[in-house]
């Protein structure tokens, strides 16, 4: 067997092994990235739901009815009568 053939076979074997490792590595990386993506999308979903809940809470606490109720009952605030208002032109 000529040296050229031996080197070619050796090169092919090494290439083959390298590609095999490469494929395994890429597959592993893809899987771990996919898992990471799933994790992030789940986190995004959870955070979005938290945000939605917070918006609902905000909607309830900042509603005009709630503000008026608190102003009138807790803070004992009232609207001044119209004749007591002084309007200043812009």
């Amino acid at each position: 067997m000529s040296n050229f053939k031996i080197y070619t076979i050796g090169f092919l074997i090494i290439t083959n092994i390298a590609f095999s490792f490469g494929i395994v590595l890429i597959e592993h990386l893809t899987r771990s990235q996919h898992r990471q993506l799933q994790y992030f999308s789940n986190q995004k979903y959870e955070l979005r739901n938290e945000w939605k809940k917070a918006r609902i809470d905000q909607g309830i606490y900042a509603s005009y009815s709630k503000i008026e109720e608190n102003a009138k009952i807790s803070l004992k605030m009232f609207l001044p009568k119209n004749r007591k208002l002084i309007y200043i032109d812009d």
Binding site: N49, K52, K53, R55, I56, Q58, G59, A62, S63
Partner: peptide, 18 residues
């Protein structure tokens, strides 16, 4: 999730949560 309904000042009028 079903879309949110908001008023002109972006106050929530209808919202869906899981």
């Amino acid at each position: 999730s079903r879309g949110t309904i908001v008023d002109r000042n972006n106050n929530i009028l209808a919202e869906s949560i899981p």
